[in-house]
Design a protein around this nucleic acid. Structure first.
Lengths: 195, 195
DNA sequence: CCGTACATAACAAACGTTTGGCATGTACGC
DNA sequence: GCGTACATGCCAAACGTTTGTTATGTACGG
């Protein structure tokens, strides 16, 4: 039980970073052990030392994805309810280059997730969690009279649908949908819901 | 230029079918020459005989995607305006197994499209076309007083965002979002827009 | 014959994974 | 305090497999 001479978690984080870098540049189709090792400037042995195999590597990549989504430099919710919901939506959208990279990876993960049972289940759970977060704000807003009553679950699905769909469009047409335009569309969308 | 003993175009179509089958089952990450040959029950030699390489194969796969999207069994628009818009949205959603397979492939293509300049451009154009179609119905609806006035382009983006986001959620949680529920969500969404 | 249609099979490259080994640290009986 | 024991970090190399591609061979209609 001797402690490591190097910080295991820290090194593992470095590998994560390399994985992130490869994904941002070449997508899941270009994610290979060797590419990660090259991005890290190390051998493939190092990579397998921290992640048993490619499967674990991919799973971990999706974990990072979720963690970064949750821990991103987000604007604080100015107030509970509708304002918080708006903030949550803006926190998902590719409004900055970093956020764009993250979303690019997220969208790319769908191909592999749809073909792998385990990843598929994990992805479903992630969506569930996302929806639950939105739902809380929606119910707050309904209680405050900012949103009309109605099944909050359905509304959460609608809001998440709109947001994710906007993510995809923004990724494929960044010039037509810069940050300001995305924000405007969110406000238009929310205005339609409140009417 | 002697006529073949077998119909060239017909055989090529068979290969296309095999490509489709592989994509539906294993996604773009699982699209290989050998997988296509296996699905076709032939050798890889046959595949390369009709498609020079993997690149051509992928490009052709996206062509099929677009062709099938255009020629899919769609409901006729019951009336111009809002009803037509609703129909267009329903025609995109994975309401049937075939439509689900198509959307699954489409979503899967985004990973490769985001990493390839040519495919990226092609995808952008496709979105533009989709939006233009929605926009026509939206402007009709506005003229008929079924939708409030406003920039039809923005509205088209919002509608397409919602629709595509719903596609993704439905693919990852088909039990929670069966055809009837998807339709209901579309109606809820449209009701919010008309209010 | 000749060109098309395809199978067979080889090929190098790239892949994920495993292994052997060397270094370097801690742990502990002495 | 010191030497043995053992765990960890990591590399280099090799493994067997799968990949895309290409070469060669056979069958056959025109």
């Amino acid at each position: 039980m001797s402690p490591a001479r190097t910080d295991h978690d820290s090194r593992r984080q470095d590998v994560s970073e390399a994985v992130w870098q490869v994904l941002a540049e070449h997508g899941f189709g270009g994610l290979t052990m060797r590419a990660v090792a090259a991005a890290l400037g190390s051998s493939t042995g190092l990579v397998t030392h921290y992640f048993a195999g490619k499967r674990e590597l991919i799973a971990h990549a999706l974990d990072i994805l979720e963690a970064r989504t949750a821990q991103r430099p987000r604007r604080a919710a100015p107030a509970p309810g509708l304002a918080a919901l708006r903030t949550q939506m803006l926190n998902i959208l590719p409004l900055t280059p970093d956020a764009a990279a993250m979303n690019r990876i997220w969208v790319g993960s769908w191909d592999v997730a749809l073909s792998d049972t385990d990843l598929f289940a994990a992805q479903s759970v992630r969506y569930e969690r996302l929806r639950a977060g939105l739902r809380t704000s929606i119910e707050d807003a309904q209680r405050l009279g900012e949103l009309p009553d109605g099944e909050s679950g359905s509304l959460a699905t609608i809001v998440l649908s709109f947001t994710h769909g906007l993510v995809v469009q923004a990724l494929f047409d960044p010039e037509r949908l810069p940050a300001a335009t995305q924000t405007q569309l969110v406000d238009d969308f929310l205005a339609a819901l409140t009417r």
